[in-house]
C-alpha cells in the first residue's frame, strides 16, 4: 500500500516524535510512504478566516499534487485530515469554485481533477491494514493499561466531508486499544475538543477544555490517553500543566500519539517511539504495569 504522506507542520516541528514513530510503524505495517515534500501547510482552517478562496486554492494545490503522484494522501493530523477533506468536498460539490481554483492552479501547472482520497493514519490502520493484522504484529501486549481514546474533533466532524466513522459513536481507536492488549476507558469527552485553536487566542478557554477532557478520562479510571492528532497531543501533554492550574488539580496524565503506542506494543523501544519528548512522562505508569 503506497500513500502520498502529508505529515503536517506539527509533526515536522514540535511533535517530531509523532513523525518518527509513524515512519517506523509504517514500515512494520507494510505501508510505503512517499513524503509530499513540496506540499504547503493546510492552514489548520485559518485560511478560511482570511479568504475562503485562499483556503481552497492552497489546499487544492496539495490535492492536485497527490493526484499527480497518483496516490491517496495519508496524514497523521486530525486537522490536516479535516481541512483537506473539507476543501475536497467543497471543490467536488461546486463546479464554479473548482473552475476558479483550477484557474489559479493553472499558473503553476497543476489541475485538481477530483480523484484523490485523503485518509488519516487511524483510518488506514483500521480499513487498509486491518485490526487482525495489528493483533498479529503485537509483541508486547499492553496488559491492564487503562487507555482513554481521545478522538478529538476533526477526525469525526464534519462527518459529511471527512466520511470516516460514526461521529457519535466512534470505535476505531477503542478497537485498536483492545488489539494491542490494553483496556479502553469510556468517558464523556472522547469526541470533544482539546481547545488547540484557542491556545494563542483565548488560552484560558483552551486550558479549561484540556483540563475537562483529562479529568473526564481520569474520573473513569483512565491512566493514559491516546490520540491520532499531534495538535490534540500538544494540548493534552505540553499544556497539561497550565490546564491543571486552571482546573485546580494536579494532573498527571501521560498521552501517546497513536503511532507511538501501536509501535511500542509491536516491540519498538521507548527511545524509538520518543517517549522522552513528552512533558508528562509515561514512565511511571508503564513501570507500574510491568511494561518497562
Amino acid at each position: 500500500m503506497r500513500f502520498a504522506f502529508y505529515p503536517g507542520c506539527a509533526a515536522l516541528a514540535i511533535a517530531k516524535e509523532a513523525y518518527r514513530s509513524t515512519l517506523l510503524l509504517a514500515e512494520r505495517l507494510g505501508l510505503e510512504l512517499v513524503e509530499m515534500v513540496r506540499a504547503n501547510c493546510c492552514g489548520a482552517g485559518l485560511f478560511n478566516d482570511k479568504n475562503r478562496e485562499l483556503n481552497l486554492t492552497l489546499n487544492g494545490r496539495t490535492l492536485a499534487q497527490a493526484e499527480e503522484m497518483g496516490l491517496p494522501i495519508m496524514t497523521i493530523c486530525n486537522t490536516c485530515f479535516m481541512v483537506l477533506n473539507r476543501a475536497r468536498a467543497e471543490l467536488d460539490r461546486d463546479d464554479y469554485l473548482r473552475d476558479k481554483v483550477n484557474h489559479h492552479l493553472a499558473r503553476i501547472g497543476l489541475r485538481y481533477r477530483g480523484e484523490v482520497k485523503v485518509k488519516h493514519l487511524l483510518q488506514v490502520v483500521v480499513e487498509d491494514v486491518g485490526i487482525d493484522r495489528v493483533k498479529g504484529l503485537v509483541r508486547r501486549p499492553l496488559r491492564r493499561l487503562q487507555v482513554g481514546a481521545f478522538y478529538g474533533c476533526h477526525i469525526l466532524r464534519p462527518s459529511e466531508a471527512v466520511a470516516f466513522e460514526d461521529p457519535d459513536r466512534p470505535r476505531s481507536l477503542d478497537d485498536l486499544i483492545l488489539a494491542i492488549g490494553a483496556e479502553p476507558v469510556d468517558y464523556e469527552g472522547r469526541t470533544k475538543c482539546c481547545g488547540f485553536q484557542l491556545d494563542l487566542v483565548s488560552p484560558h478557554l483552551a486550558y479549561r477544555m484540556i483540563g475537562k477532557r483529562i479529568m473526564e478520562c481520569r474520573d473513569r479510571g483512565g491512566e493514559t490517553m491516546i490520540t491520532g492528532c499531534p495538535l490534540c497531543h500538544i494540548n493534552l501533554d505540553s499544556y497539561q500543566g497550565y490546564a491543571g492550574k486552571e482546573v485546580g488539580f494536579k494532573l498527571d496524565m501521560p498521552t501517546f500519539h497513536l503511532s507511538q503506542l501501536l509501535g511500542f506494543a509491536m516491540g519498538f523501544s521507548e527511545e524509538e517511539m520518543g517517549f522522552a519528548k513528552h512533558l508528562v512522562s509515561p514512565e511511571r505508569v508503564l513501570k507500574d504495569r510491568g511494561l518497562l
Binding site: R157, S159, P167, C193, G195, Q197
Partner: peptide
Amino acid sequence: PHGIWDCSRCVMCNE
C-alpha cells in the same frame, strides 16, 4: 472578548 474569535472550531454546531 466572548466573540467570534473564541470559537474553537470543534464543528459540533455544523454537525
